[in-house]
Design a protein around this nucleic acid. Sequence first.
DNA 1: CGAATTTTGACACATTTTTGACATTGGGCC
DNA 2: GGCCCAATGTCAAAAATGTGTCAAAATTCG
Lengths: 230, 230
Amino acid sequence: MKILIAEDDPLTLDALATCIESEGFTVLRASDGREAVELWRSGKPDLLCLDIMMPHVDGYEVCRRVRASDRTLPILFLSAKNQEIDVVVGLDLGADDFIRKPYTRSEVMARIRAALRRSAPREAGDSFLLGDLTVRPRALLAERESKSIELTPREVSMLCLLHVHKGEAVSRDAFLDTCWGLDYFPDSRTLDQHILLLRKKIENDPANPAIIQTVRAVGYRLGGPMRSGC
Amino acid sequence: MKILIAEDDPLTLDALATCIESEGFTVLRASDGREAVELWRSGKPDLLCLDIMMPHVDGYEVCRRVRASDRTLPILFLSAKNQEIDVVVGLDLGADDFIRKPYTRSEVMARIRAALRRSAPREAGDSFLLGDLTVRPRALLAERESKSIELTPREVSMLCLLHVHKGEAVSRDAFLDTCWGLDYFPDSRTLDQHILLLRKKIENDPANPAIIQTVRAVGYRLGGPMRSGC
DNA sequence: CGAATTTTGACACATTTTTGACATTGGGCC
DNA sequence: GGCCCAATGTCAAAAATGTGTCAAAATTCG
């Protein structure tokens, strides 16, 4: 993991860098905004720590330029500027966090860890939520209020497919392609049957499915209020 | 977008809620940790704001429980506790941010916006607006004020056709060509019938269609604000 | 072998699509 | 304006289609 630090005061820069390196990260050092942008382009860091006031190009401007081509790279401001308006400006420029001086090493590290954690790609096999149900693919389990429901590999595979396509309908063909062999096209009730069993297992009221909704002529879709949907 | 606030001081809770609501969010209010967990399960909020010190179950514990089944929901701590160790504990529990008192409204809002922005890499994709209606073709859904309307594939196809030709009339032949088989020429009421059903589903007042307007002798066209001077 | 899982076929049921009959609307024409 | 005609709106019912459900058979796996 590479972290870029842009800070014009050599002492502060060094203190920060030492601290971050001691946690096992690689540090790229920039002493002004221009250098920061160059290093960002050449060094491919995983996270930026930017001071606001720097020669040539200030931290805001660095943030703006980076965000123009990378909307997900974690960017943290570290600054003595203490007006909340600056915080608001910084965050609304697309920064992920704004740490005011005086800060402690441990807080800076905690915020860096938090930012990196968020940007880490989710692994397949991680647990996820389906309504009030927690699905743990690797354990072949679903849990509701600490009650466990055993699942078969195929059932897990179906739930994962639905989860991956959360918010949209998943066609019956997609189910057969993904959860069965590709060239499998029975004119049969196999898929319906599996949906039926799944619903009996995981729905509170299998007769009125709240989790697995059917989309006639297409397939199925996850129900419930979608988070992050606008 | 729903935001859950857990805070045991009624005055603080109310001030926060008012502020957040004024930015257009829906607020779920919890006055202790237990309530917060219940509301989280039932209300499906998009973000949590947690006070640390609360009766029954404290903010840390709420965070722990939520993170046990949802690793991506944005969680912000708002607290008077001012030791950086608390900040570190909070963030390392998986929180996304930690805002200390005294905070300003604008900073809280900026940090909420930042957290929501990160959690919504969700590409709105191909969903589009029809008046006050959001159409999500891939989900076969339309939404108005968070109420879902189920659509059939044909209805989606018709709405998409109208949307593609937004601002101009779409001929009946075009509908039949695109949404039905090409060489389809019944002297029948099929198309009218489908328009009728669609209007019943999506129009506020189906008798006076505001979305799907008929263009006599031609076909139909999307309503709403038209460019003037055609 | 026995248990769990998967598949199949038959049937009922619900929804969508189409059709035909009839009412209503709007525009051109006298 | 009033009339006529074609285009569209509306309804109810039939036809077509897709799913839910069950019981039983087939398969897999320890």
